[in-house]
């Protein structure tokens, strides 16, 4: 199991490579996920979401740079660019929803929105 913590820590001492990027991305993703789950403010959740998406981008670009695929095939790059675009679209839609909600209920607290249940 090449996934063990010891392995990872050991390789982190070496020059910057795929491992570093992946660990960074994983940590970023975890931070984002933690933020999503703990923030009460909807805008905060949105920001945490951006962290998760950026972790993905870091992953993609790192894999493109160090991964097994041919460097000429720009798959990873293209994927990352598209993810950025999508993140923008998602943020726009999310902010619009949150704005409308704020106008209507004077709150951006995701937990107070619980009319629907059961």
């Amino acid at each position: 199991m090449g996934f063990m913590l010891g392995d990872i820590l050991e390789s982190l001492g070496q020059p910057v490579g795929l491992r570093h990027c992946l660990v960074f991305a994983a940590l970023l993703f975890a931070v984002g996920l933690y933020g999503v789950l703990t923030r009460r403010n909807a805008i905060g959740i949105l920001m945490a979401l951006e962290l998760m998406l950026n972790a993905v981008n870091a992953n993609l670009v790192a894999f493109w740079r160090y991964g097994p695929g041919p460097r000429e095939a720009l798959n990873g790059q293209v994927f990352a660019v598209f993810v950025i675009t999508m993140a923008a679209a998602e943020a726009a839609v999310g902010l619009a929803i949150i704005l409308a909600l704020f106008r209507l209920r004077r709150t951006v607290n995701a937990d107070e929105v619980n009319l629907l249940k059961g």
Binding site: L33, V36, L37, R40, A110, D111, V113, N114, L115, L116, K117, G118
Partner: peptide, 17 residues
């Protein structure tokens, strides 16, 4: 089981993730 559907989006996200 209905009771698990609390209406709180945090609970939903926590379960999902």
């Amino acid at each position: 089981l209905r009771q698990t559907q609390t209406g709180s989006v945090h609970v939903y996200m926590t379960v999902t993730a």
